[in-house]
């Protein structure tokens, strides 16, 4: 569905160098710290910035060749922009209705009201969370094959977040659709993504299936003595701690079987990101 091949974007103090593939029918997460390059990658996919190298394909086409009909198949939420807030949702209904063939005014208006978004109020009167909900509903409203969601759950309370994640899960159940999503709340991604890309300082540092990450990765907490005796073949990253070392491994079972006295925690996106994005 989406293919980024050696994409390069050079800014004065930042360089994005990234290859990614989002297959059809899959939910892919993009995680990384603030300023790691997530939004730059999203903007590159959406053609909002010009790249300095590499190629980006959506639906098998170079993004420069995308037509209006192709763009209708994309729904996007960006963290730093949205509907013109001087207007109301009711004002936007005919705009979206005109732009998308597969848009239902009645359903969209009903969905908005159900989510507590008044269609008569000016959008500038909405809270950040409400604005985000509106963007997500708009992205879901026209039966897009590809959703590009940059921090869609930012600013949402727990209930709204669950509701939105539920909507996204439901949306992804149709096998022809793909979602690429970034979030700084790792539990959001753990619950919805089939695979995750980890980005740090503009580069992809890890790509893994979420199941593998949660079931096979682990964090070893070892003393200095235990560390000296440890087989380090399967250690991905090591961090010095007060008690000794924290070590990230992709072979949790191996260490559980061979080092029963070592404390081993199950993998989580938070742990992996913390370990992978710091200097060892």
């Amino acid at each position: 569905m989406v293919k980024l091949n050696n994409v390069v974007k050079q800014y004065d103090n930042f360089r994005l160098e990234c290859s990614m593939e989002i297959p059809t029918g899959q939910v892919t997460g993009l995680i990384g710290r603030n300023g790691a390059g997530k939004s730059t990658a999203f903007k590159a996919i959406l053609g909002l910035i010009h790249t300095d190298g590499g190629t980006i394909e959506i639906f098998g086409k170079d993004i420069a060749q995308l037509t209006q009909a192709d763009k209708e198949q994309i729904g996007a939420v960006l963290s730093d922009s949205g509907f013109c807030s001087y207007l109301t949702i009711r004002d936007f209904l005919p705009v979206l209705d005109t732009m998308y063939k597969d848009f239902s005014r009645e359903k969209f208006a009903a969905d908005c009201e159900r989510m507590g978004l008044s269609i008569k109020k000016k959008i500038k009167e909405f809270s950040t969370g409400m604005k985000r909900k509106l963007q997500i509903l708009a992205a879901l409203s026209h039966n897009a094959r590809l959703l590009i969601l940059d921090e869609p759950t930012a600013g949402l309370d727990v209930v709204a977040r669950d509701e939105i994640l539920g909507l996204l899960r439901e949306y992804a159940e149709n096998g022809d659709r793909s979602i690429v999503i970034s979030s700084h709340i790792s539990s959001d991604l753990e619950g919805i993504c089939d695979d995750v890309y980890m980005i740090d300082n503009g580069k992809i540092v890890l790509h893994e299936d979420t199941d593998v990450l949660l079931n096979e990765y682990g964090l070893l907490k070892v003393t200095k003595e235990q560390f000296d005796k440890l087989d380090r073949t399967y250690l991905l990253k090591t961090r010095e701690e007060r008690f000794g070392y924290s070590c990230l491994t992709k072979q949790r079972q191996f260490y559980q079987d061979n080092y029963p006295s070592v404390v081993i925690e199950r993998g989580s996106i938070d742990e992996v990101i913390t370990m992978m994005t710091q200097n060892s």
Binding site: D80, Q135, I148
Partner: peptide, 13 residues
């Protein structure tokens, strides 16, 4: 205002 133009280009524009 509030980067609205960026949002417009995520629509089929």
């Amino acid at each position: 205002f509030e980067n609205g133009v960026v949002y417009l280009f995520t629509l089929p524009v």
